[in-house]
């Protein structure tokens, strides 16, 4: 039990990530409405972004922008003073891409609504079978 508490206190970022992943997966599997599924997919994406960004954190470190970058060539730069820039780069593009893919998902939902007049999965299936 003490192990679990220590685990939670030092690694609560993973716990938050796991909670978001579970919420997102549940919405994607169980919800019958396509828009709710899209919302679940977005929660899952947010979970992954949280996971990456929290990995990049370092204790007592600064933003990954080199201080006094120009003018002092002899100035030594220590990697431990700056947080890890790599996850930020990956998630920066991932956020914009997730907005663009969200647009495509909503476009598909609009197209399905035009065709079948509903966004409920079971009703769409019924209409496909009856057609």
């Amino acid at each position: 039990m003490e192990d679990l508490a220590a685990n939670f206190l030092t690694k609560y970022n993973y716990w938050a990530f796991i909670a978001l992943v579970m919420i997102g997966f549940y919405a994607m599997i169980v919800k019958r409405n396509l828009v709710k599924k899209i919302v679940g997919m977005n929660i899952l994406q947010t979970a992954v972004i949280l996971f990456y960004v929290s990995i990049g954190a370092k204790r007592d470190a600064d933003l990954p922008i080199i201080a006094h970058g120009h003018g002092s060539a002899s100035h030594a730069v220590h990697a431990a003073d700056y947080i890890n820039p790599l996850p930020h780069v990956l998630m920066l593009t991932a956020i914009v891409v997730s907005v663009a893919t969200l647009g495509v998902a909503i476009a598909l939902a609009i197209k399905i609504y035009r065709q079948y007049g509903t966004l409920e999965e079971d009703e769409i299936g019924e209409r496909i079978r009856n057609a």
């Binding site: 690694k11 609560y12 990995i55 954190a57 204790r59 730069v77 990697a79 996850p87």
Partner: peptide, 19 residues
């Protein structure tokens, strides 16, 4: 752990980028 400077993600390519 959260904020560990010795995390594997912070040891391979990222120090090169920063330095």
């Amino acid at each position: 752990a959260w904020g560990d400077p010795q995390a594997p993600a912070a040891l391979h390519v990222s120090p090169y980028y920063i330095e």
